[in-house]
Design a protein around this nucleic acid. Structure first.
Length: 218
DNA sequence: TTGTCGATTGAG
DNA sequence: TCAATCGACAAT
């Protein structure tokens, strides 16, 4: 089934599981890489303390407030790019972080991009295991933010959903987001079972617990 | 203008 | 377990 914008216009929580199993193709740099999404995370707007859009619109997160189906890439830890697909209605911020994928075609290109950055090779299953690794094999950086993934002329396109169509896959798993301290109580991570590319879980970083006030409040 | 920290990764 | 490495944003 073809992916349309309406399908992506729901909340991040609704859209995230639907993207599991979808295929994404990048022809950036003249080399084609095709992947099947195996792991994602939902990020809402004002109601999600872990979202880049939590404190309102800024230059960086502006695309999250626009129409669904656009690419949102951000730079993190001074060296990595991570990619999201925007969702929700215009005016409402929401996006789905692409955390891992299985490489269906273009593995040599993916491997070459990895070696170029790390000086070392990865096993096929790990080439796109993790948001920064996935963005790397696809050649995605900040300059690609805003690209319409539903436009056939775009160098990066969301091509198709699995046979099930607009429904989430029959079998998938959910859990807390990886490396996110805020709003950790919600299962906003979705992944396909038995997929070697799915990244390892890691609890959120320091939450800087408000003072080590062990004693009870007055 | 300055200081803090991050939706991570790879080496040790 | 920890360093790398820098842009965004809140605080000054």
């Amino acid at each position: 089934m073809r992916i349309d914008r309406e399908l992506l216009s729901g909340s991040a929580l609704q859209v995230a599981p639907v993207l599991l199993g979808a295929t994404l193709v990048s022809s950036i740099g003249g080399a084609e890489v095709l992947v099947r999404i195996t792991e994602v995370e939902a990020y809402e707007g004002a109601l999600d303390a872990a979202s880049h859009a939590f404190r309102g619109q800024t230059k960086r997160n502006a695309v999250m407030f626009g129409e669904a189906g656009r690419l949102y890439c951000y730079f993190v830890y001074g060296m990595h790019w991570c990619a999201n697909i925007t969702c929700g209605r215009p005016g409402t911020a929401a996006a789905v972080l692409l955390r891992a994928a299985r490489i269906l075609d273009g593995e040599p290109v993916a491997q070459a991009r990895t070696v170029a950055r790390t000086q070392s090779r990865h096993s096929p299953a790990k080439l796109a295991s993790g948001p920064a690794r996935l963005a790397r094999v696809l050649g995605l950086t900040g300059e690609h933010t805003g690209l319409d993934l539903l436009d056939r002329r775009s160098p990066v396109q969301l091509t198709a959903l699995p046979a099930a169509g607009a429904e989430p896959p029959a079998d998938y798993r959910t859990g807390p987001r990886v490396g996110v301290a805020a709003a950790a109580e919600h299962p906003w991570r979705f992944w396909l079972p038995d997929e070697p590319s799915v990244s390892a879980y890691r609890p959120g970083g320091r939450k800087r617990v408000a003072a080590t006030r062990q004693t009870d409040a007055p």
